[in-house]
Simulated assay, not measured.
Amino acid sequence: MSYDTVFKNDLFKDQAVLITGGGSGIGRCIAHEMARLGATVVISGRSQDKLDKVIAEIQEDGGKAYGFTFDIRKEDAVKEAIESILKTVGPIHHLVNNAGGQFAAKLEDISINGWEAVVRNNLTGGFLVSKELLLQRMKETGGNIVNIVADFWHSMPNMGHSGASRAGMVNFTKTAALEWAHYGVRVNAVAPGIIASSGLDTYSDEHKKTIRTRAQKMPTKRLGTESEISAAVVFLLCPAAAFITGETLRVDGGVPNTTINYEVPDHNRLPAYDGFHRVDDSDFIKSLKKG
């Protein structure tokens, strides 16, 4: 079996992509699809075991993959890692700033350490990796950057630290798209809604209960899949998106369009796209997909 992509074979042949947070969830899915399309994939994270597992999967499927462990929140670590990646792999044509994370808490209960940890994960890290790759390579060769953000458009109760940092990343995307255009660099973002992915497994049982009820409030009446996010990322990286920069593509089931004045009738007319042949769902995620 191989990834059931909608894009043409060898779309990214002789190109390389760096995907931060590529050892699990959405990042793992993007890595597999990009490898399926001919790219040399470089994934990063803080757990070598996770990276090794994904690398083995990609190689078993006939693709090329490398893994580098470093902390995207630390400037010196990022500089050293980008230098090592370029020496080992060669030019990096595409960057997906996927690494990030958050925890459920009300603003009044978030410590300064908790706040700064999430902001550094979701905003500072993406800035550091983008800047360093620009300085060490893309300033001369051009390239594409896609930042993974979130559905924060109607505020983000219980995750205010994440909402603030994701909003910052959207503005960073717009600014970088302008400042780096003359280097031949396009910068865009993808904003996932609630995705049936391993990231949901990290939340408390109480928060998982609220997730179960949200699908029926969405226009799609279901959660998104990792493949649906990956497809959006691949599109923004591909030549067909050459006239798109500074944009944030929402992949959220239409949730920001909802209003208290209208409730979408129950239906099952918007089925999911799930092309990931190696999707590895937990029992919780499987139950969400069943509805």
Rank of each mutant, 00 (worst) to 15 (best):
T245H: 11
E60F: 07
Q216D: 12
L223G: 01
I285R: 00
G22N: 02
V54G: 01
S47N: 12
Q216Y: 05
T5K: 02
A240M: 07
V42Y: 04
G199A: 06
I30R: 00
H32R: 10
E263S: 03
A232E: 03
E80M: 12
L223Y: 05
K221F: 03
S287V: 00
A150Y: 02
F103T: 09
G246L: 08
D151T: 04
D283N: 07
D151S: 15
S2E: 12
Q15L: 03
D281F: 06
L200R: 00
T248I: 10
G62T: 12
M218L: 15
N147L: 09
Y3H: 06
A240C: 06
E57I: 08
R269N: 13
G168M: 08
R214M: 14
S162T: 07
A105N: 09
G100S: 14
F70G: 01
D281V: 00
N268H: 11
P192S: 09
T259A: 09
N171E: 12
G126M: 03
A105M: 08
S198W: 02
G142P: 10
H277E: 08
A189R: 08
T20A: 12
W180A: 05
K208R: 14
W180R: 15
R269E: 14
I82R: 13
P192M: 06
F284S: 04
T225K: 02
A240K: 06
N9A: 15
M138V: 14
V41R: 01
H207E: 13
H161M: 11
D4E: 11
N147D: 06
T69N: 15
N188V: 05
E60G: 13
Q216G: 13
A65K: 05
A35C: 05
A117N: 07
R46F: 07
A231Y: 01
S204E: 07
V185E: 10
L51G: 04
D76E: 13
R137I: 05
I145L: 15
G101F: 11
R222S: 07
H154K: 12
V118M: 12
G168T: 08
S162N: 12
L237N: 08
D61V: 04
Q48L: 14
S230Y: 02
M218C: 13
T202D: 14
R137S: 15
C238G: 11
V234P: 03
T258R: 07
A181C: 15
I72F: 10
K286N: 01
G90K: 03
D14Q: 05
G253Y: 05
A81M: 13
N9K: 15
V17C: 06
A242H: 10
S287R: 00
V17A: 11
I244E: 02
A241T: 05
Y3W: 11
L11G: 09
P239T: 03
R186G: 04
I85T: 11
G184M: 06
